[in-house]
């Protein structure tokens, strides 16, 4: 499987993602934001970081970059696209996924491990994953997911809520919501579920020597679902 990670000025999780994708068997290429085309890929990843210094709104400038048109075209043809953290913010700003990411409710930059409950219904990202609850890492200032009531309902009806913050037992409550996101939403799919945007970083937790190894389940499962 071939993957492409897009690098924007200010991306800082691009190389972590490269390491993770290669570790689990993807043939990955790094693509500069100013290029016009993405090479032939099965998966495109918009990595975390602080593209363009979070100017205007997080992800808004990157969402107008040269490479984005070919990412949108790839996604609209059904290509698989993942946006992690700032990548999720960029996806939101392109309109490929629904909603908005506001400043964290308590105005703090949050950098810690959290637990998320994954949505295993028909989607290539989490279907058949060996664990329902993953311990992943978050590091963001603007991850407070928001959308209109109508959008929320249609996403719920269509199983588009991809991951929700929970505690280690899978309990989803206000106490396990780090940033004020509605319905504890940590990540969403587009309507066809070929696009995943989420705040937590699976690429940061892919080895037992790190604070968690649960990102490995994500990448292993993703690769096996894509084959």
């Amino acid at each position: 499987m071939k993957s492409s990670v897009i690098i924007f000025p200010g991306s800082n999780c691009d190389r972590d993602m490269d390491v993770a994708l290669k570790k689990f068997g993807f043939k990955n290429k790094m693509i500069w934001h100013n290029d016009n085309n993405i090479p032939k890929s099965d998966l495109v990843v918009l990595p975390g970081g602080f593209s363009y210094g979070d100017y205007l709104r997080c992800g808004s400038i990157a969402a107008k970059s040269n490479i984005i048109n070919s990412v949108i075209e790839f996604a609209n043809k059904g290509g698989m696209v993942i946006g992690i953290c700032n990548g999720f913010q960029i996806l939101i700003e392109t309109g490929l996924v629904t909603g908005a990411l506001l400043r964290n409710k308590y105005l703090k930059f949050i950098c810690k491990n959290i637990f998320v409950k994954v949505n295993k219904t028909q989607n290539k990202y989490f279907n058949k994953i060996k664990k329902d609850i993953l311990e992943l890492h978050i590091a963001h200032n603007d991850g407070n997911y928001f959308c209109s009531k109508d959008d929320l309902k249609s996403m719920q009806d269509n199983d588009q809520i991809a991951v929700r913050y929970c505690d280690s037992n899978g309990e989803i409550s206000e106490n396990s919501n780090p940033n004020g996101s509605i319905q504890n939403i940590a990540g969403v799919f587009n309507e066809k579920k070929n696009i995943l945007g989420m705040m937590p970083h699976p690429e940061r937790v892919i080895d037992n020597c790190l604070s968690s190894n649960d990102g490995s389940y994500f990448f292993e499962n993703l690769l096996s679902n894509m084959k």
Binding site: L102, R103, Y106, L107, N144, G180
Partner: peptide
Amino acid sequence: GVLDPQGKA
């Protein structure tokens, strides 16, 4: 209706 945490602070 949209939460404005900065305004609140």
